[in-house]
């Protein structure tokens, strides 16, 4: 399997659309096209092998299920995972002659995903590259605001960032997917699956989602007591084997009790809650990178 210039260009456009400050907006871009599951569908269609694409996408989505970017705290930008990692994983699966839905194919996809996306820090470099170059457009924007030339803001917000993405999303994706296929084969000889580097890589792949979960916890947990809902949910899934929808449904009853309780307390007291201001300050600090 090879990736032609045309196929590589299409992947490059999707990388530009799907990154964290992407050109499709965060709802359609980062949170839809940027998810490896959807990336697998797109790559499968572009490379003409839907089944392998989806299988690789599912495998990589598992690594990055919780590694989302609350408040911009993590720059593990998924454009590199979804539009460089998945196509290369598909090539690797083909060149190894593995069945698309086999466990080995999924393992291979996971290792490519962690390698390209995070350990290889491609995503991080692309993220900071784009964000830094956007400073130039913002500078043009500030000049326009000073002069009262407000129409220019549309070009600053919707037009110029395409240039940042051409350089930091399109070109890297184009080159890495087109020339990457031979590198993938070379990688297999250089790093055998049972060697220390590959074993480490896979272990990292299993540990990485812990960071994503911990970032979400940081938003929710202020005192050790706040860990209780987390462990109740964890127990439901791990010990009672409830699926996520069921866990959500059960959690609603607790949410309702807490809400009614808090409201009852505050109406009884009729006092201004004193803790409000300090909570706001804490939350704001979380927003700063």
């Amino acid at each position: 399997m090879t990736i032609s210039w045309i196929q590589a260009s299409i992947l490059g456009i999707f990388a530009s659309l799907s990154s964290m400050p992407g050109m499709a907006g965060s709802t359609i871009g980062n949170y839809t096209l940027g998810r490896p599951l959807v990336g697998g569908l797109v790559c499968g269609l572009v490379l003409g092998d839907l089944k392998t694409g989806i299988a690789a996408g599912v495998a990589m989505q598992l690594v990055y299920i919780a590694l989302v970017t609350p408040g911009g705290t993590v720059s593990a930008d998924l454009r590199a995972v979804s539009y460089i990692g998945i196509p290369l994983a598909m090539v690797a699966i083909h060149s190894q002659g593995l069945a698309a839905t086999s466990t080995n194919a999924a393992d291979l996809a996971k290792s490519m995903g962690t390698l390209v996306g995070t350990v290889g820090t491609v995503g991080t470099v692309l993220f900071y590259g784009t964000a830094t170059m956007n400073l130039v457009w913002q500078h043009i924007g500030w000049r326009a605001v000073e002069k009262g030339d407000f129409k220019k803001l549309y070009a600053v917000d919707w037009g110029y960032p395409w240039i940042s993405h051409f350089i930091f999303s399109f070109i890297p994706t184009l080159l890495m997917t087109h020339f990457g296929s031979s590198a993938v084969t070379a990688l297999k000889t250089a790093l055998p699956m049972d060697g220390i580097p590959m074993k480490t890589l896979f272990t990292v792949g299993a540990l990485l989602p812990c960071v994503g979960i911990a970032i979400l916890l940081k938003q929710i947990v202020d005192s050790p007591l706040d860990f209780i809902p987390f462990f109740v949910g964890f127990t439901f899934a791990a010990s009672l084997h409830l699926n996520l929808v069921s866990v959500t449904v059960v959690s609603l009853i607790f949410a309702m009790i807490f809400y009614k309780l808090d409201m009852a307390i505050s109406t009884n007291r009729q006092a201004v809650p004193s803790g409000t201001t300090s909570t706001i300050d804490d939350d704001e600090e979380d927003e700063d990178i």
Partner: peptide
């Protein structure tokens, strides 16, 4: 404050479920 606490409870439990299911 009450809404936030209720949502944080749902969020906490679901995150726990996500962790146990996928990690």
């Amino acid at each position: 404050k009450a809404i936030r606490r209720a949502i944080a409870t749902v969020g906490g439990m679901v995150v726990g479920g996500v962790a146990a299911t996928w990690v």
